[in-house]
Nucleic acid binder design. Structure first.
Ligand SMILES: [Zn+2]
Ligand SMILES: [Zn+2]
Ligand SMILES: [Zn+2]
Ligand SMILES: [Zn+2]
Lengths: 153, 153
DNA sequence: TGATGGCTTGATATTTTATAACATACAGGG
DNA sequence: CCCTGTATGTTATAAAATATCAAGCCATCA
């Protein structure tokens, strides 16, 4: 994923097809707008802001308004196709949309690439920490900043 | 800390005195404004927004401008007296300002109380996760949403 | 067929959060 | 006192998000 040399169009295609399939299963509506916004979020492996999506979405056509983008993003986040990165006010495509989950991320401070960690063990540790502090667990965000392997090489 | 019955003025006093002492050690300037903003952040155990601080700071006197508050908050966060809660765009007093660290939090979705977790083990797990994913570790945010003991009782 | 109701998108305005840029004040060292 | 660096004041604006109401679309059913 962090390898710059991969054929990224494959990532995008896979994400779109998965989303399509999951929406059919869940009987939710994968409209052209939502599809297009998901495609734009996946246009890179870096987080993208709502307003960047808005600009890209507006290219050529009449400029769309913020609610159009935010509503589509809300849907995609709700369905688990996209995660929001709180520390960056940004969004990134989920690497495992088939299983709804909380996103736990590594963020490279040099190249801005993001790696999603889908480790159950990490999730367990977090959920236990909640219980040990007397809280019921609802959800969590974990965003780790560091420098990725590529950038240190 | 989550116990509503504690004498909160003690929390505030302790926080202000600690900050004063630490600033003397570090030879940084704990100005009246910074002191006042820290006091306001500590006015409750819930996260507080910059604009709430701004409103409280402005009571009576001429209204202060946003940069005044943000600069004071930047200083307090920098010194480790206050943590920023990314998922709420808010700030909360640090429970252990003597040792600079990353804030890891539990946030009650019912009463908005926040509990800071100062567990080294949790920190170690997170730092290891970074290394296992090929990242160097710089810092991290962990914000867990759930319902606190009080609110479930 | 065409009325109905629910969801989706469009459009306008505004709110909330945060920063840029430049001016003034103020403390400490010469 | 003057100089210098830090802190604060002031004005303006940028960036991020939401409230509200209108219009479009589509499936269902009278
Ligand atoms: Zn994911
Ligand atoms: Zn990198
Ligand atoms: Zn702390
Ligand atoms: Zn609670």
């Amino acid at each position: 994923m962090l390898n710059n040399k991969h054929d990224h169009s494959v990532c995008v295609e896979t994400a779109l097809e998965s989303a399509q399939k999951i929406c059919e299963e869940r009987e939710t509506r994968f409209t052209p707008l939502r599809r297009r916004v998901l495609e734009l979020v996946w246009s890179k492996h870096e987080p993208i802001t709502a307003y960047e999506v808005l600009d890209m979405l507006s290219e050529g056509k009449k400029r769309v308004a913020p609610p159009t983008v935010y509503r589509a993003l809300d849907f995609l986040v709700e369905e688990g196709f996209v995660h929001r990165i709180e520390s960056l006010n940004s969004f990134v495509g989920c690497s495992d949309p088939a299983h709804k989950h909380q996103g736990h991320f590594m963020i490279c401070t040099k190249c801005s690439n993001v790696t999603e960690m889908n480790e159950q063990s990490l999730h367990n540790v977090i959920e236990n920490a909640a219980k040990e502090n007397g809280y019921s667990y609802e959800n969590s965000i974990l965003e780790i900043a560091g420098v990725c392997e590529n950038c240190r090489a």
